[in-house]
């Protein structure tokens, strides 16, 4: 991977319209997919590390409830839900994006969350209560930037108008809720089926 590929995510965050366009039409999908996974991984690492190592002023954690695996799940599940929901909707709504493109655009939009939060893990150890304001300010800034990139990315990938993009995003969030509900339903049904068969097995074993 040459230095251009390393610089590209940062270039995209500062030039989103140009960046996402190139992402869709100009660049190699395979390389971008690799970068996407790398971004996803670094976001997981950032979240895990900030849970443990962010300064005491901004981070009180209960060691008994800390679970790094859950932090990974908290990143992975929303991204997957978002991509699935978005893809399912946009295929019906004349969107031009393929699933891979949606996934790549989403992952690239996560860059500000890593770029801003990662240095703050270290920096937050050297601030006082008054200076913690800057910490929270930049955290919110990162989230706003992320939302903006998601918006631009979605618009470019599907070649939508801005208003249609907003509509799609709202519908996507609703669809994510449906997916979560279906997943819960599925798992609870599976659980009951397993319980049913295990009870039958036990009955048989006790009888003979």
């Amino acid at each position: 991977m040459n230095s251009d590929n390393i610089k590209y995510p940062f270039h995209l965050t500062t030039h989103p319209f140009q960046g996402f366009w190139d992402l869709k039409y100009e660049r190699n999908t395979r390389i971008d997919l690799t970068i996407s996974f790398f971004i996803l991984l670094s976001l997981m690492v950032t979240n895990v590390l900030s849970n443990q190592y962010a300064g005491f002023i901004v981070n009180i954690y209960n060691p008994e409830e800390m679970n790094s695996l859950m932090e990974i799940v908290y990143v992975l599940i929303p991204v997957l839900f978002w991509c699935t929901a978005n893809w399912s909707l946009t295929t019906l709504m004349d969107g031009e994006g393929k699933f891979v493109e949606i996934f790549i655009a989403t992952c690239f939009a996560l860059v500000p969350l890593v770029m801003i939060n990662f240095p703050w893990i270290w920096l937050s150890n050297f601030i006082s209560m008054q200076e913690a304001m800057f910490y929270y300010l930049s955290q919110s800034f990162a989230v706003i930037w992320f939302f903006f990139l998601i918006f631009v990315g979605n618009m470019t990938v599907h070649q939508y108008t801005p208003s249609k993009t907003v509509g799609t995003i709202v519908l996507t969030i609703i669809a994510m809720g449906f997916i979560a509900f279906l997943c819960l339903l599925f798992f609870s049904l599976i659980q009951q089926i397993i319980a049913f068969f295990s009870v039958i097995y036990q009955e048989i074993v006790f009888r003979y």
Partner: peptide
């Protein structure tokens, strides 16, 4: 840090810094 008292920690930290 033991008493999870962020306000006083901040005061102590400022003096320390």
């Amino acid at each position: 840090e033991q008493s999870l008292d962020q306000n006083n920690y901040s005061k102590a930290y400022l003096l320390y810094r």
